[in-house]
Design a binder for these strands. Sequence first.
DNA 1: GTTGAAAAAATATTGAG
DNA 2: CTCAATATTTTTTCAAC
Lengths: 149, 149
Amino acid sequence: MELDETDRAILRILQEDARTPFSEIARRIDMSSATVHDRVGRLEDAGVIQGYHAKVDPRKVGYGTSALVGLRVEQGREENALERLREIDGVKEVHLTTGEWDVMLRVYAEDTDALRDLMFDEIAEMEGFARSQTMVILGTDFEDPSLPV
Amino acid sequence: MELDETDRAILRILQEDARTPFSEIARRIDMSSATVHDRVGRLEDAGVIQGYHAKVDPRKVGYGTSALVGLRVEQGREENALERLREIDGVKEVHLTTGEWDVMLRVYAEDTDALRDLMFDEIAEMEGFARSQTMVILGTDFEDPSLPV
DNA sequence: GTTGAAAAAATATTGAG
DNA sequence: CTCAATATTTTTTCAAC
């Protein structure tokens, strides 16, 4: 799908605030709200917009600790490992990477005790696990929900 | 702020789809939409809900490459480095971490050439830069926008 | 805290340029 | 692709329990 400047303007607004009324988007990009409606529908259908999500403060819902985890997986066991990782509560992202680690995880836990349990009881016990390194996130300086479009 | 099961149910729904009409949330949790409206407002005011964001497919807007970057910063230069990182286009997350790296970045770039430029021309040139390691993300197996609440 | 009902506003749809 | 007008739905407010 080809995106023009109007589409990009709409994407910028919806990335910033997904509940901006179409009427206000229309005002801001100087088009009718019917056009905005039409374009947003097409952006959704084309998969450019993958969804709309409320961002919840992890601390306020009991997740005081977050970490990035590098993972080495035994050769030939990759599929089993990935399948298992998807099911583990607290594992929020699973990326396949080049370099020192085969897989990088983003995990959330209640506190450092819970993180230890997650690492020792769940991740280190899974099929195909070789070794891991945990980088505890002491703080997030910057986290932009928007991509520059 | 104390969250009860009703709040959690609302959060689950809005994390999944931030544009679910209050009337439908009300149906699903068996309350009036006025109550949902009231609760969502309180969750926003308390900072539990930090915002609503459209999720855009990076590939569809020209970001074919993503990476996790581990960064070492010279002692005493941390603030300068963090300030600079915030301004660099393509740097989407900046986390302070324990372990091998002081800072972990999540970056997006058009392609591997653009990633090289980002690393060599922007990040390696910034004040306080000591060394870095780039973990190119070959694929994301799993990425859940929701926290289990 | 919750509700139902009314008022205000937004979204979805239609038909036509 | 865009628009104006209309129909439908939702959000918002508020008096009352």
